[in-house]
Amino acid sequence: MIDVRTAVRRAAAEELRARVRAFAEREMASSGADAHCDAWMTSYSAEFSRALGARGWAGMTIPAEYGGPGRTSMERYVVIEELLAAGAPVALHWFADRQVGPALLRHGSPAQRRRYLPGIARGECYFAIGMSEPDSGSDLAAVRTRARRDGGGWRLEGAKTWSSHAHLAHHMLVLARTDPAEDRRAGLSQFLVDLRLDGVQIRPITTQDGRRHFNEVVFDGVRLDDGCLLGTRGQGWSQVMAELALERSGPERFLSTMPLLRCLLRRTEARPKELGVLLAELRSIRAMSQSVAEALGRGETPTVAAAVVKDLGTRFEGKVVELARDLLPVVPDLASGDEYARLLAEAVVHSPDRTLRGGTNEILRGIVARTAAGA
């Protein structure tokens, strides 16, 4: 039996959901923005991000003392679910909202919080993420980027790759080696790096559709002051693990193809059992993702559960593409005026990277296995 408080929360969540849905439809229609698959990586609009911030729908868990609305993690979940389902242009503020804001709240100094959080809450401060490195695959511990002490600050040398929208971002959160250690996961630290500093080079990586959102970012002796160190020196690995729980467990891991699935449902009169099975699987993954969001809201770091969500979610998205091609076969065409053909093309183009970004599914299964074995 549902108690009164639960019923009130659910009613408030549905009211919020309806407002966000109406907002996205209205704003996208007025600006002429199309729905896109993988919109959180590829589709952006500074005006849309600012409009979200003005309504308190960016940086939602940032408390009022730092310029945020101070909403709950589940309220944020409702908002991003609707934005993903709409295929809305959210990529500019996405990484600051998803990872950097929570990292600053956990590990940032008061000065760092005052500097960055208000802009994140306004949807006006953009961050790129600097974890992966060239020639390292999903081995995050293979960090060769180094930050060395230099007088009263640091010198940053190295490179990061697959950094989405670094060419449009103001800052990057960078994982670097600061101390030698036998354990590769030790001796790592995080830095908040202004991408306009001397010595920063941002090189485009063009995807197979001819578009650019990935980049390689090279740091050639970039001078950082002590205020750029996030958290505790040498604790970068544990800090990053908390961020990866946020990155891997969110609804973007199973709703990136939702615009395609919605379009398919609108055009498919007969509903075969395969479609029902797929929707049931979606419901299960969503429930698991929500439980992780609740745990994160309590300050926990559910690394294993987040890995499972990411593994299941990205495989689900592959099934969406396969079923769409079976049920309503058309020639995928990124330039098509037909919404379904365009969305199918977008989903197909990004199919290879869904099980790679955020850590390959094999790496994630290794995390689950090691934890189960007590390793």
Score class of each variant (00 low, 15 high):
L275P: 05
R10Q: 14
Y126D: 07
V143E: 04
P63Y: 00
G250F: 00
V330T: 10
A54Y: 07
L105A: 03
W40K: 11
L104P: 04
V240N: 11
I363A: 15
D353A: 14
A13V: 02
L265Y: 02
M258E: 13
R286K: 13
V309F: 03
A295L: 10
S351M: 13
P118H: 09
L52P: 11
E216H: 13
N215H: 15
T42Y: 13
R184N: 10
G68H: 01
A142Q: 07
W57R: 00
T257A: 12
R286G: 01
P110K: 02
D38G: 03
A324M: 05
T206D: 04
S164P: 08
G137I: 03
A39Y: 06
I80G: 00
A375F: 14
L117C: 05
E15N: 10
L156F: 06
G250R: 00
M288Y: 07
A159Q: 12
H350C: 11
E252L: 10
M60Q: 01
V309N: 05
R298T: 01
R114L: 10
A169Q: 08
A58T: 10
G236F: 07
A103I: 02
E339Y: 07
K160L: 04
M1Y: 11
H93D: 15
R5F: 14
T360H: 09
S132T: 14
S351Y: 12
A307L: 03
Q208W: 14
A11F: 12
A18G: 11
V217T: 12
D179P: 01
M172S: 12
G53H: 06
F316S: 00
G227M: 09
L282G: 00
R71I: 00
A307R: 11
G210H: 06
F191L: 08
G337Y: 08
L328G: 03
S109W: 06
R21E: 14
